[in-house]
Simulated assay, not measured.
Amino acid sequence: MIQQDHGKPLALVVEDEALIALDLQDELQDAGYEVAGLFTTCAAALEWLRTQTPDTAILDAALKDGPCREIALELARREVPFLIYSGLSENCQLLADFHHVPWIEKPAPPAVLVEACQQLAVGRP
């Protein structure tokens, strides 16, 4: 796992619902993560990814400016483990190329997502 200078793993959070994003941020920070974001648009997350690489990521499948497909492709290209956290059905065609990626349907407690991130970090499905 790539660690930032301060020794904490960096988690990218891409979520356009403010309360969900803030809950995730709090839970991740409590679990020892540094949180990048919170990004509410695909464009903002992609801009950040131009110069940064997270250790793991939580993506909503679709934001106000469209599906997170390009973000998922970039994370996969960099071999960054990520999961999808979405209210959309897992059968959604938005991210069909990522059927192997863990998909957690909303609503779920933030602690479930943190545990899933920790499992990704050690390579467990």
Rank of each mutant, 00 (worst) to 15 (best):
V13S: 06
I58P: 01
P9Y: 06
I84E: 01
D65K: 07
K8N: 09
P81H: 03
K8V: 02
I20N: 04
P110D: 08
I84T: 09
D65T: 12
A96I: 09
V35I: 05
D97C: 02
A62P: 00
C68D: 00
D60N: 12
P125K: 13
A61I: 04
T56M: 03
E17L: 07
D65I: 09
A62N: 13
A44R: 11
L59W: 01
E90V: 14
Q4I: 04
K8Q: 13
P107A: 14
C42E: 14
V35R: 02
A116G: 06
V112Y: 02
L38P: 12
V35T: 06
V35L: 05
A116I: 01
V114N: 05
C68R: 00
I104W: 00
S89K: 12
I104N: 05
D23L: 07
G87E: 05
M1E: 11
C92L: 06
S86V: 08
A72M: 04
D55S: 15
L22D: 07
D65P: 10
P125L: 13
C92A: 15
D5N: 09
E115K: 13
H6Q: 09
A108M: 04
P125N: 11
L22F: 12
Q29L: 03
V80W: 05
R77P: 02
P67F: 02
P9V: 06
V101S: 06
Q118Y: 00
A36Q: 03
L12I: 08
L38C: 07
A116D: 00
G7V: 06
A57H: 04
A31Q: 08
D16A: 07
A62M: 12
D5R: 04
P81T: 05
R77E: 13
S86T: 14
M1F: 11
L83V: 11
S89D: 15
R77T: 10
I104A: 03
G37F: 02
E115S: 15
C117H: 01
P125H: 13
Q52M: 14
L83P: 08
R78Q: 14
R77Q: 11
L88K: 12
F39M: 05
L49A: 12
V112M: 12
L10F: 03
L120G: 07
D65L: 10
L19G: 15
V13Y: 01
L120N: 04
V35E: 03
L88T: 05
P110Q: 07
G7D: 04
Q4L: 10
P109V: 14
